[in-house]
Design a protein around this nucleic acid. Structure first.
Lengths: 224, 224
DNA sequence: CATACAGTTCGCTGGAGCCCGAACCATGGA
DNA sequence: TCCATGGTTCGGGCTCCAGCGAACTGTATG
């Protein structure tokens, strides 16, 4: 009826607690099955199936069939960005759900956001890369400089060249309310962190847990 | 139940078509009365009253009483940013409501977003300011350089010094899918455009209509 | 004072949609 | 072939909430 695109439809999709929990779970970037998502949302698998259909036809998630399993993930980084923005706002307003338990502290320190590193560590990394001239901001575009390209190659970080996703992108951090690095480079760096054994995912959470030596090695490698 | 802040509550508030239309109307930055918003949403004033209470207690809008009128506006720029992000995503997905009439063309060219300039012109301005070194990006922070400060002073642009809002901020443009300038500086520039008579608001819309000479003067002044 | 208008509160109705039980398809393995 | 398992479809119950009519508070204006 009014101008602009249909904002209510998308918001309504996120507005149900069950679906919101599913989406939050998919922020890990991992592809999850319908059953896992049902558990995450605390509903039966029939209900979950319905929700997932809605989310899919709304364009927020995509489905991948493999044998009798259906894997779901967020449709693209834009959706992930929207969710992080929402989380940022929700965290700033209603202090409701911010009982900061020990687990939350870990979440704020280092967690996975879609497929890249977020939290304290993510923000610190991003700041350092900019300060070192590895990244350069032009307008709202982020570029990897030649120096940066050389450095990444020296570290042995492989970057998915085929994908048409942007190489670098900013992503707002809901706990820090600052930006961290997303895009193909962000993904490559996180993969590298896993490959080097510096850190690993805590199962069933978005927490990335660094070992003591791993954190030191990571900081040394990137000059934090 | 799950980690992170309560994202569903906020999304549900935006998820009702009536409330979404009200919020979209408030994106103009103007303070609107309950009746105007009821008309915008196409509901009775009783219903609107209820919606506005919900939005207020959810922290998305604020209320200002003046005599027998109640003026409503978006709570802060973060909320406006969230709405723009949502519009951007909605525009990219469902092509549903994107029948591009003549009015839409004007909207895409120059419109007001909360209290600053968006659309073609907003994006072009932002790019130019960065290229000229008036603005500088550090991390996710935008700074006004000394050169920029001098230039703004030379143009006679006054900036609200008291406010604690950030001086410069990026804001994603839903029609261009690029950033434009927000924050106190963004507001100051738009006010300047009005003051110089370069452009004026089309009543009851978000359109900013430049006169032919006004657009030329604007481009000359900022070196577009 | 009376009148007009902005906004809210109350109570009710109707419909949308969340949810699950049960039954139904599809795949994979014995 | 039969069973186990992941996922979907169908039907009905139930709750929530948007919407409005009617009545009320509060502020202007004559």
């Amino acid at each position: 009826m009014k101008d602009g695109p249909d904002i209510a439809r998308i918001a309504a999709l996120i507005g149900d607690p069950g679906r919101a929990n599913m989406l939050a779970a998919m922020m890990s970037g991992k592809a999850l099955t319908a059953r896992e998502l049902a558990g995450e949302a605390g509903v039966s698998s029939q209900t979950a199936s319905g929700h997932l259909q809605n989310l899919e036809s709304g364009g927020l998630i995509t489905r991948e069939r493999q044998g009798r399993h259906h894997y779901f993930r967020l449709a693209d980084a834009d959706v992930a960005g929207l969710l992080e923005t929402l989380m940022g706002l929700a965290a700033k307003k209603g202090q409701l759900r911010t009982r900061t338990g020990p687990r939350d502290a870990e979440l704020r320190h280092a967690r996975v956001c879609y497929n890249h590193l977020a939290g304290d560590m993510g923000v610190a990394l991003f700041d350092t890369l900019l300060a070192q001239g590895v990244l350069k901001a032009e307008g709202d575009e982020l570029h990897l400089t030649e120096l940066g390209e050389a450095q990444m190659r020296a570290l042995g970080i492989s970057i998915d060249q085929k994908s048409r996703a942007p190489m670098c992108r900013e992503c707002l951090d809901w706990s820090e309310r600052r930006s961290h690095l997303a895009g193909r480079l962000g993904r490559g760096i996180l993969d590298h962190i896993y490959a080097q054994g510096w850190a690993s995912r805590v199962p069933d959470t978005r927490i990335v847990r660094f070992s003591k030596t791993g954190e030191a090695s990571f900081k040394a490698a990137f000059g934090l």
